[in-house]
C-alpha cells in the first residue's frame, strides 16, 4: 500500500471516524455508509490536497467520488492541479 494511502487512512480513522472497532481500508465505503458526514468530507478533501500536493477544485468533485480512499486518490489524479508555490 503506498505511503500516501496509509497516511490518508490513518487520518480518517484517528481524526474523523474516531470510533473504537471501526476499520477502514482502501475500499471501505465512507460517504454511502454514513460513516462520515458533509463537514468531515470537507476535512478529508483538504487533507487529500495536502497529501497529494494538489489543488482539487470542489466544483469538479462529487461525494460519490470520495466514497472510498481508493476513489479519493483516483479523483485527485483526475481533477487535481499542481499547487502554486
Amino acid at each position: 500500500m503506498p505511503e500516501t494511502t496509509e497516511q490518508m487512512i490513518e487520518y480518517i480513522v484517528e481524526e474523523i471516524v474516531r470510533r473504537p472497532g471501526v476499520k477502514v481500508d482502501e475500499d471501505t465505503p465512507l460517504v454511502s455508509s454514513g460513516l462520515i458526514d458533509s463537514l468531515a468530507l470537507v476535512d478529508i478533501l483538504l487533507k487529500l490536497e495536502d497529501v497529494t500536493g494538489t489543488h482539487i477544485p470542489a466544483g469538479k468533485v462529487q461525494p460519490k467520488d470520495m466514497d472510498t480512499v481508493r476513489l479519493m486518490f483516483s479523483t485527485a489524479a483526475r481533477v487535481g492541479k499542481p499547487r502554486k508555490k
Partner: peptide
C-alpha cells in the same frame, strides 16, 4: 444531498 453536492461542498472548500 443536492444542496450538499452543489452548494455546500464547493463553498466550504473555497
Amino acid at each position: 444531498f443536492w444542496i450538499r453536492d452543489y452548494v455546500f461542498l464547493p463553498l466550504a472548500t473555497a
